[in-house]
């Protein structure tokens, strides 16, 4: 891998459904046109393309029906999709091991892979609201991956706490066919996640769950612990002791279990990560999905 250091990492993916669209792309499409998957015969008169003329099929058809037609083969055209990156820019995404740099790298990876494959890439950043400064309409310009990554790197700190923007960002996704990468730490109310997933139900959603280090969840194991919430800045203080630690861990585990359940309900498989997301990881994810 070392010799490829300067090369942008990539991953390969498949869109599981058939795409309808007039533009050519790589994903299985529904529209008829130039492609490699056979979609039936048609009369040469209707589709005057002698290159696709199938004499054998024509003769058999004429013998069967007594007509005098020439049949041409029709194919399903491959079509592009859009890869949406929904980037959580809330404050909790900017502490220690989970930071904007990793998010930017992921964005660049997704954008590069999408545009490289002829798909379009779009970006929607959110925190407490939709981030208009971190937003990109679907595009296939080759320069966009770096621009998108820089957008996230240079993004300012979230003005307010919360991830309510998730709903707005989900509303922004208007493409007919899209894979939506939802990158967040999911340390938020599950109702919001559930609502967003419901909105995104027509798309293939790939939740990328960034796990915080244990220290960021459980800063101390004993004694007086003063904490401030990364989002709200709300101060909590607690005298840590084994029983509290147990309860704390229980709450945490419950949350992530419920989160997984929530994804399962929406037939979505999350990708858990605690650092940089590599192309290999994503490739494995998509392959595992097959």
């Amino acid at each position: 891998m070392s010799e490829n250091k300067n090369r942008q990492d990539e991953f390969s993916y498949r869109y599981p459904h058939k795409v309808y669209g007039s533009l050519p792309g790589v994903h299985h499409g529904k529209s008829l046109g130039t492609g490699d998957s056979f979609a039936g015969f048609s009369d040469l008169f209707d589709y005057p393309d002698p290159r696709r003329l199938d004499l054998r099929a024509s003769i058999r058809d004429n013998m069967a029906t007594g007509n005098d037609n020439y049949l041409v083969k029709r194919y399903q055209q491959r079509s592009p999709i859009t890869l949406w990156m929904m980037a959580d820019l809330s404050r909790s995404m900017a502490i220690s091991n989970v930071n904007h740099e990793q998010l930017a790298n992921l964005t660049q990876l997704v954008a590069h892979s999408a545009i490289g494959l002829g798909d379009r890439f779009a970006l929607a950043g959110f925190d407490s609201g939709l981030r208009h400064d971190v937003y990109m309409m679907p595009t296939r310009q080759r320069s966009m991956p770096i621009i998108a990554a820089d957008m996230i790197r240079d993004a300012e700190v979230a003005p307010a706490a919360g991830v309510d923007g998730l709903i707005h960002a989900a509303n922004m996704i208007t493409s007919k066919h899209a894979i939506v990468f939802l990158a967040s730490d999911f340390c938020c109310d599950l109702d919001t996640v559930d609502k967003a997933l419901r909105q995104l139900s027509r798309y293939t959603v790939v939740p990328i769950v960034w796990k915080h280090d244990d220290v960021n969840h459980l800063p101390s194991h004993a004694g007086w612990t003063e904490m401030c919430d990364s989002e709200t800045g709300e101060r909590r203080s607690i005298w840590m002791r084994p029983s509290i630690k147990k309860r704390w861990k229980q709450t945490m585990d419950d949350h992530f279990e419920q989160l997984t359940n929530c994804f399962m309900r929406h037939r979505v498989r999350p990708l858990f990560t605690d650092g940089d997301v590599t192309g290999e990881q994503l490739t494995d994810y998509f392959l595992g999905r097959k």
């Binding site: 909790s92 502490i95 960021n216 969840h217 007086w224 612990t225 003063e226 904490m227 919430d229 704390w248």
Partner: peptide, 13 residues
């Protein structure tokens, strides 16, 4: 000065 940032204080019992 003893403050530690936690990802989500919701977990704190």
């Amino acid at each position: 000065n003893q403050d530690k940032t936690v990802a989500w204080s919701h977990f704190v019992p």
